[in-house]
């Protein structure tokens, strides 16, 4: 195996174009723990730069960022003469063992596409870093790579799934900013967020804008979901309201309950009597009989059988 020895040298930071992020995959760049370690022990592993003037960083952006924040004036560097594609591969491989977060994976894919790697090469890397090899995944990752830092931070903070990332990318940046602001202070699971985002996108599609009133002042994600459901499913909500009113009118004690299909799709209803004696059963049946006589049960069937519309027609 051919092995090449690389020597490092200390280079003044002012000779490096610190803002050139062509090969930067890391996100976020600033890392407290790394900075603290560098403050105590210095930079143990040199960064790699292009043999150019001024120098362009290939790998070691986080170390450079820490060095800058600590006021270092020079930094250990290995100077390499390589082509752009090789430089990116060095950057990828240099970071591969520590593992990439989803934003960094997005950067990898995006930069490979920009530098003209073949689709096969891109898919090969995607396979190695645990991503599905599909055109739609590439598209989403490129979207994430170019997204604003608020979204990237939100994605990492809540460890969002690709599905939810896709949903957020679907909105325009202004809307995204608002959604992230509303959701920032509250906790949610990935599936709850998915439900919320699905309803938000549906509303956006139907009405052309976000239902901001439904998001404002909600105390938690469940409340947001409840409000949005009312907004997205006005028919179901009104049926539900009618049902609750009728149920209340029945005046049943706690041991009697009526359940309907939450979507009012099934026409049958469940009538539950909880009883530990024959008397309680008799009493329950009498109460149900009363509700039938007063027409409340008929009203409930009207809802499950969707008779309301026909009668109004």
């Amino acid at each position: 195996m051919y092995r090449q020895r690389y020597y490092f040298e200390y280079i003044p930071i002012e000779d490096i174009v610190t803002q050139d992020r062509t090969f930067c995959l890391s996100y976020p760049l600033f890392d407290d723990i790394l900075t603290e370690s560098i403050r105590r022990f210095g930079i143990i592993q040199p960064i790699i730069v292009f043999d150019s003037e001024p120098y362009i960083v290939i790998t070691g952006f986080k170390r450079l960022e820490s060095a800058l924040s600590l006021g270092f004036e020079e930094i250990p560097c290995i100077i390499r003469q390589v082509g752009q594609m090789d430089a990116l591969l060095i950057a990828v491989n240099d970071n591969l063992t520590r593992g990439f977060n989803i934003v960094e994976k997005a950067h990898c894919v995006d930069k490979m596409m920009q530098l003209g790697f073949s689709m096969e090469e891109v898919y090969d890397l995607m396979g190695r870093i645990g991503l599905g090899r599909h055109e739609s995944v590439v598209k989403s990752l490129i979207g994430l790579s170019w997204a604003e830092t608020e979204l990237k931070d939100f994605v990492l903070r809540h460890r969002l799934s690709m599905k939810n990332i896709d949903y957020l990318l679907w909105f325009d940046p202004n809307e995204r900013e608002k959604i992230i602001a509303y959701l920032s202070g509250i906790s949610f699971t990935d599936s709850l967020l998915r439900e919320i985002l699905e309803m938000l996108s549906l509303t956006k599609l139907k009405k052309g804008s976000l239902p901001e009133g439904e998001l404002e002042g909600a105390k938690d994600a469940f409340e947001i979901r409840k409000r949005l459901k009312r907004y997205v499913n006005p028919g179901i909500s009104s049926l539900d309201g009618e049902f609750k009113k009728l149920k209340e009118s029945c005046g049943f004690p706690k041991n009697i309950d009526i359940k309907v299909d939450p979507f009012f799709e099934k026409e049958y209803i469940d009538i539950i009597i909880k009883a530990d004696s024959l008397d309680k059963v008799r009493d329950g049946l009498k109460k149900i009989e009363g509700a039938i006589e007063k027409g409340y049960m008929e009203g409930i069937f009207g809802l499950t059988k969707s008779r309301i519309h026909r009668d109004e027609d």
Binding site: D166, Y167, W170, E198, S201, L202, L205, K206, V232, N233, P234, G235, I236, L239, F263, F264, E265, K266, S306, I308, H309, R310, D313
Partner: peptide
């Protein structure tokens, strides 16, 4: 949603007993 199919998503949907999305029953009847 991804393809922004406004026409297809305009109505109110529920999950039917077969797990498929369909319009609300009262709408279907109408």
């Amino acid at each position: 949603i991804k393809e922004k199919r406004r026409n297809l998503l305009y109505g109110e949907f529920i999950r039917g007993e077969d797990g498929k999305y369909r319009y609300l029953k009262s709408e279907r009847i109408r």
